[in-house]
Design a protein around this nucleic acid. Structure first.
Lengths: 232, 232
DNA sequence: TAATATTAATGTCCCTAAGACACAAAATAA
DNA sequence: TTATTTTGTGTCTTAGGGACATTAATATTA
């Protein structure tokens, strides 16, 4: 019970907040990286993030959102804490802690904004192996992807990769790209119905064929979790 | 892209690491709290935790373990990151971040050690409402409990509340106490068998009746996640 | 010793939700 | 009109948990 610590006697470890922002574009899962301007790993690609500003941010969620806005000019539709990563080796300057969020945005909400920001780029998650990435960010992206994949098996979070109004086929495609395997269209429709968080709309056409029903999230509903995973 | 921050120009927010240590004792889910010696909320009960010591801790997991050892003399059998909590209001001194872990320990591993530590006490999770708890630690405990409950529905983590060798009935009881409802013995046995992470042993007697099979975790196995939740 | 009580384990049927897939419906193109 | 393509539905199968009766093994008691 040696609680006689003097706070200032300790090197308070540096805390950063980073975000793994995903989208589904060109039939692939993409992650947004920014080219680092400053020294540790300057010039390399890394996760958008930075330090908490206690005058601007009421909590770390807002830090994540603010940094995404600053560095990429994007506002994700879904944001959730992944976990903190810490060690002596992950930063050449010594012990460091990064609190990592993962986030989703629709591909349509991306194209216009991202072009105005140099040094921010979408990378195919599969191409990351051959890329020099700063810190342990490659590992972190992999962890975030695993979490997203798990979540996609028991929830409808992938809708946040789609526009407000979407078809069953679009949702099916996005889920399949995220989890990396095909799913049953019928199962998806059953979940859309049973979850009761979506509502139907007017129809719209697609690639020659029957018009498809448009759905959108009801207002002020929570994404529900299902009792079972999809075909894992 | 204003990445021209001077690190030292910012008040780097204080980072603490706290742990919600659970056990199942006296047929109830208990959480360990320590009486705070220092000023913010001095005298109140709070989660065991403290500051990272970059000279001692190679990562925050080790900070959590070290602080548990220092403050309660306990070494949990299971430790996992819950999430970080941050805001301006949670600490009267201003903006603060706490990285919270939740942990499990067997009741048998507790009684002897805990007695040697004054100012550490197990509280029934249901009695916390009527207790003056420091910071937002009551809320945090509630979040940790929810996470543990969810986990108990699709994994065998509750075994870490039991001694190395345990019976099906013991595991059933512990799970039921954690999730707050009764489960089917048959379902539990099916999971024990299908998970293949447990092995049988010799038998032992209990309250007058047939001797019950003892199980223990196989060496170097990971706790598996099941595809479905129990009777939720 | 035999009957009863108690707890453990198994056998079996039911139920739910996902998987598989055929088929019908609605649109386009030839 | 007919073929094609995509959407949506009907329905049977499958996997695994829920419910609960039955059997097994031990202790207690008449």
């Amino acid at each position: 019970m040696t609680d006689s610590y003097d706070i200032n006697a300790f090197k308070n470890p540096l805390l950063t907040v980073d975000s793994v922002l995903f989208t589904v574009k060109d039939h692939a899962l993409k992650v947004l990286l920014v080219k680092r301007a400053k020294d540790p790993f300057a010039g390399r690609w890394g996760l958008p993030g930075g330090f908490v500003d206690v005058d601007l941010d009421n909590n770390t969620d807002l830090t994540a959102l603010r940094k995404l806005k600053e560095k990429t000019n994007l506002a994700p539709r879904y944001l959730e804490q992944l976990q903190a990563f810490s060690s002596h080796n992950r930063d050449p300057r010594g012990f460091s802690v990064t609190l990592v969020y993962y986030a989703l945005i629709a591909a349509q909400d991306v194209s216009s904004h991202i072009d105005t920001v140099e040094n921010a780029q979408w990378f195919d998650i599969a191409d990351l192996d051959n890329l020099a990435v700063a810190f342990d960010h490659k590992f972190i992206v992999e962890q975030a992807r695993t979490r997203l994949q798990q979540k996609a098996l028991y929830s409808m979070v992938p809708v946040y990769c789609l526009p407000e109004y979407f078809t069953v086929s679009q949702l099916k495609t996005v889920i399949e790209i995220i989890i990396g395997k095909s799913i049953q269209r019928k199962s998806l429709i059953r979940r859309i119905d049973s979850s009761k968080i979506f509502q139907k709309s007017a129809e719209k056409e697609k690639l020659g064929g029957r018009l498809s029903q448009l759905y959108c999230l009801k207002a002020d509903v929570e994404i529900v979790n299902f009792e079972r995973n999809l075909s894992s």
